[in-house]
């Protein structure tokens, strides 16, 4: 039964990361789209909406870059560490 324990332990971590990145980033992206739409709605130009929108897109792009970094690092036998909050590339143990 030890496998079930390991699996459930892994599963909730994957679920948490999945919700944060897999649902969180698309939601930020959708908010970005909403901001851009608001920025030029009704003939009024709202620079704040544009700034907010592109800011949100930038966060999403950072998330995607994190994904690419992870894939490349894994391919080279490295791992990503989040112990300093910001990700760093470390040798795989």
């Amino acid at each position: 039964m030890h496998n079930l324990g390991f699996a459930l332990d892994g599963a909730w971590r994957v679920l948490l990361a999945g919700l944060l990145l897999g649902a969180g980033l698309p939601v930020l992206f959708a908010l970005g789209i909403r901001s851009l739409a608001w920025a030029d709605a009704g003939g009024v130009v709202r620079p704040a909406g544009k700034t907010l929108g592109y800011g949100l897109f930038a966060v999403v792009i950072l998330g995607v870059l994190l994904g690419i970094t992870f894939i490349v690092a894994t391919g080279f036998g490295k791992a990503l560490s989040f112990e300093h909050i910001y990700p760093t590339i470390v040798p795989k143990h």
Binding site: A7, G10, A17, G18, L21, T74, A79
Partner: peptide
Amino acid sequence: GMAAQSSSAAVILASSHLGF
């Protein structure tokens, strides 16, 4: 489509990171 693909990408990468 975007929600589904993002979920796939995040779950695949997260699980691979966690050795699951």
